[in-house]
Design a protein around this nucleic acid. Sequence first.
DNA 1: ATAGGGAGCTACCGGATGGTAACCGGGTCA
DNA 2: TGACCCGGTTACCATCCGGTAGCTCCCTAT
Lengths: 195, 195
Amino acid sequence: MSHRLSAPARREQILHVALEVFANSGFHGASMNDIAEAAGVTKPVLYQHFDSKRDLYQALIEEVGNRLRTNIGKATAEATNGKSQTELGFRAYFRWVADDHDGFRLLFGSGSRRDDEFNEAIRKIIAESARAVAPLIAVDIDESHRETLAHALVGLAEGASRRLVGLGQDFDPDAIAAEVSALAWAGLRAVTPKD
Amino acid sequence: MSHRLSAPARREQILHVALEVFANSGFHGASMNDIAEAAGVTKPVLYQHFDSKRDLYQALIEEVGNRLRTNIGKATAEATNGKSQTELGFRAYFRWVADDHDGFRLLFGSGSRRDDEFNEAIRKIIAESARAVAPLIAVDIDESHRETLAHALVGLAEGASRRLVGLGQDFDPDAIAAEVSALAWAGLRAVTPKD
DNA sequence: ATAGGGAGCTACCGGATGGTAACCGGGTCA
DNA sequence: TGACCCGGTTACCATCCGGTAGCTCCCTAT
């Protein structure tokens, strides 16, 4: 069949294939046999590259998380003010979602959040995103509320993405980003202290 | 121990206890034995009231979904304009989250989304919320974008809630609602057609 | 040719868990 | 008092699945 691969190549291929399988079926829904079959090999091969199922899954979370981080980081680094930072950040986010559907579903669509171990990793990614967003909230409210609003904004992007990805069709990330970031930016300006 | 209960009472108790267990451990993480033990009975008793584990879980999703629906529906019914509708809607939502942590985690915190069968039920709830939000987006953009923004707003509330619930402490739902709805309302006004 | 290493496979184990069959025991009513 | 209803229990089955031991086969280098 698909010939033998070198160890590193096989590892990459497994990661690639596993991402798709996990994204489709979730951690519990996908068996190691499923993944092995999808990769055109048998189970023991998986264990030559990963210590356990969790290990494989975790590796994926980390990899996908890094892609997300990197994209947003690069994009916002070029921003000169809050508004453009917001726009560029959302654009990078939606671009990432648009061409990494499986990655998005792995992180945000699945049961990853349930499991304590995975939860931690994903929480970190979300918290990190929130921390990037928080400084944009200029209003003088207490730290805790600011954090909460930051998480809300992360949820804003997540909610839109979930639907877009759920539809299964491709979409124009820049157009969505423009609307969502307009909403976010104007919204941020409107939050007033106290009430 | 806790004496025998009438069938209906036992059913209610099981639902109550199962919500907590599922919320804590997720669908896969919680075994029927866990739930039975938490309820102070044994497994077969569960099967006298529910056909299967999935059946029990589904019943919970529906029940929680109804609570959410009802609360928001009642609240927004009193609104006279878009702005107050937004405020009242968010307030009802956060109030629900505040006193139904377990319900929130069942619907939004867990692996429920993964499973096709459950997914459908939860999707419906989210879609319903989005449909309630969509009319507030006055801007003249095409239907699909409006839907996406509506989902984004649902995600806004979800993101904030996830953090609040995750912190484990209680919070003032009205205060959060005030901020989030201010953000949402101002944001909505700012989305402009085309660009 | 042949030895060796590394990629891959067959076959298996054991634990966890959803689900069930068969039984028990106490309160109620004739 | 004795039959029966019904909520509850014990003990079990069957299956799925993560994980592993040990072998095979092919390619390469000497």
